[in-house]
């Protein structure tokens, strides 16, 4: 059995919004994008053991021992002051789990699950862990019925995808913007690799859903929606699209002043896509 470990900021055993059916979801720590609009900015960085969070903790749950940050969950009151204090958008409370830990958790909840989704952060930054976990699920008699999904920004290269797709049933991939400069501004990176990944995954029959976040005044313009339409049309066969609406919940910094997406605008974009024969187009369940 693999002893590989991953930094996992949160685990859910009930989720109906991370793929088909009820899914266990692992939110892996760390991301290679730095999106202004990120709803969970504390999942972006990895702890560098600088110790800047120690003073911020009102209950002395954090300390440095031999140059390594230690976290005492019994003292923690979940006030999240350390997240605010962290200079690298990391989370000093994040624990490590082994593949075996996750298998145990899945066995306990298997009767309730359709599958597992690894999300983030950017899950593929800990690719060896995903590969080992998915392989172990696939050859476990009690767990092999669970479908295995990845939620990604698509920055992973083709060799990486090829190494994990065998054990993967589906991928949800986010495109943050189609205009290159806009994408760079929003994420700090180019979008070429994400678009290439979407094509590769679609051709492999593994692209479960293409996701697009509508941010008012930035990614909800006619030009962007037209690009989304053209991109979807350029893929051979149907692709499921999910339009997400920007909200400020959890967002830090300048984007916390951005306006929330309006229902009218998101629905108009959906009907524009559907009338071009694209879809199905999924929309937010709550407004």
């Amino acid at each position: 059995m693999s002893s590989l470990q991953a930094q996992i900021s949160k685990i859910l055993t009930w989720s109906c919004v991370d793929g088909p059916g009820n899914r266990a979801v692992l939110f892996l720590q760390g991301c290679n994008f730095d999106c202004a609009a990120c709803h969970n900015p504390h999942t972006i960085g990895s702890c560098n053991h600088c110790g800047d969070c120690i003073e911020a903790c009102p209950t002395q749950a954090l300390s440095l021992k031999a140059g390594r940050l230690r976290f005492d969950p019994d003292r923690c009151t979940q006030c999240d002051a350390c997240l605010e204090a962290c200079p690298v958008k990391a989370n000093p409370m994040v624990p490590c789990y082994s593949v075996e830990d996750i298998l145990l958790l899945l066995r306990k909840h298997r009767a309730f699950l359709s599958g597992i989704t690894v999300s983030g952060g950017e899950a593929t930054m800990q690719l060896p862990f995903i590969r080992a976990l998915f392989a172990a699920i696939g050859c476990d008699r009690e767990l092999c019925h669970l479908t295995r999904f990845i939620d990604t920004n698509g920055y992973l290269g083709p060799a990486g995808w090829k190494s994990v797709l065998n054990g993967t049933d589906g991928v949800m991939l986010d495109i943050k913007a189609f205009d290159l400069e806009r994408h760079r501004r929003l994420t700090g990176r180019s979008n070429e690799r994400s678009l290439a990944s979407a094509r590769l995954l679609h051709e492999a029959g593994k692209l479960y859903e293409l996701r697009y976040l509508m941010i008012p005044g930035q990614t909800d313009g006619e030009e962007e929606i037209a690009s989304l339409r053209e991109f979807a049309l350029s893929l051979d066969g149907n692709v499921r699209i999910r339009l997400n609406a920007f909200r400020t919940h959890g967002v830090r910094g300048k984007a916390s002043d951005w306006p929330a997406a309006s229902r009218d605008k998101v629905e108009a974009a959906a009907s524009q896509l559907e009338s071009a024969g694209i879809g199905p187009v999924a929309l937010p369940s709550l407004w």
């Binding site: 989720s15 109906c16 059916g21 009767a111 309730f112 699950l113 369940s285």
Partner: peptide, 18 residues
Amino acid sequence: LDETVKANPEAVMDLCKG
């Protein structure tokens, strides 16, 4: 259950079977 489950009734089925 919150309203997001409306888009994914399979999750309710999983819950029931579990």
